[in-house]
Design a protein around this nucleic acid. Sequence first.
DNA 1: TAAAAAATTGACCATTCAGACAAGTTTTGA
DNA 2: TCAAAACTTGTCTGAATGGTCAATTTTTTA
Lengths: 214, 214
Amino acid sequence: MSRTAPRGPYKPGRIRQESEQRILNAATSTFSQHGYAGTSMQSIADMAGVPKANVHYYFKNKLGVYTAVLENILGLWDTVLNDLTVEDDPADALCRYIDAKITFSRTHPQESRVFAKEMLSGAPHLQEFLAADYRAWLEARLTIFRGWISAGKMDPIDPAHLLFMIWGSTQHYADFEPQVMQSLGTDSLQQAHFDAAAKTVKQVILKGCGLTPT
Amino acid sequence: MSRTAPRGPYKPGRIRQESEQRILNAATSTFSQHGYAGTSMQSIADMAGVPKANVHYYFKNKLGVYTAVLENILGLWDTVLNDLTVEDDPADALCRYIDAKITFSRTHPQESRVFAKEMLSGAPHLQEFLAADYRAWLEARLTIFRGWISAGKMDPIDPAHLLFMIWGSTQHYADFEPQVMQSLGTDSLQQAHFDAAAKTVKQVILKGCGLTPT
DNA sequence: TAAAAAATTGACCATTCAGACAAGTTTTGA
DNA sequence: TCAAAACTTGTCTGAATGGTCAATTTTTTA
């Protein structure tokens, strides 16, 4: 354990990168459970396994940690949900989008909850994101939907509200996990539950839009 | 203002009832915005327009205020969403349920957000509710859905996941208000927005379930 | 290998907060 | 009208928290 301790190659910034990531993970976990105010720097430090002063060495202050967590989440979002720009078959595209969102709820529930709590508080730290990146992302999708509709490929449905339905339905599995678990009679959500969820959402949304699975 | 100050009739418990309600309203507001940990007794007192010690006179402690707020919310929920027990036309019943949920998001956004934040934190104070009242409520609905399906009145759709879709879609308008406002290009949600939301949700869900509006 | 840079950490401080308490005022009921 | 009950509120306290700092150790670089 001492001779070949798994320390990476000696690159500048290596320690910083690893430490920041460890702290960020810990912060995501505690923020997701207890919210911004309910999370103490001490608790983040404890969960990361470092002294509190160390957290302050890597991040200016508590808000700095929090915004770093948020930015990390927006990055994940962007990574996962942007391969859907294609203007091919509506049914195909919707299915892939729904699958991706449900998968995100399964693989990143904590990130989803931090994001949701921020929204619930009025999204004070997401205003510029909402006004810039998100706005552009949304407009692109709305344009695609409108194209499908005017081409007669799907029913005329308000695209924004349709997106809300998909978001709301898929987010639900991460954000309202206790209710979902109680409803499904399980004490931990498994792959099978998410599969059933994706299946139902796709089934209802597609048919509801006048689409048939390919 | 002094001679006919609008004080109610001299009933025992009148002052208590009014004070508790005023404090509860203030607490709902601050809890919804800042969460449990982010809300101080002082801020509740300020918003209610009473000294802090007065809050402690009516409620044992901060957790006491919070649980009272939660119970109040569950009561509202129960009041609004329980006239749907009827086993009549599925399209009818679903429409009424969706309308009721959307209306709740519009008229009680703060309550919806407190509830959502509690869920996001793992619902530690809703366990008994989930295990008892909610469980019973859910089973009743699932039975109705299954009845409709086996009677061939609607497509075979997993009832629990269908309910999640409706919940998620409708909650979204209260819980993710900043995103919804940004998406709809408005800075306050109006009746018309909720009408459009209800219309779209009903349209997609009904058709998605193989139902036609009556 | 030695000086410089980066990282670690214990101790400390000012502020905030939940809650207790006791002294006073108002309301109620007989 | 008057005593008891209900209500009001200013003040205090111990604990927790965000943040600072300087001393020390580890890592990098030349």
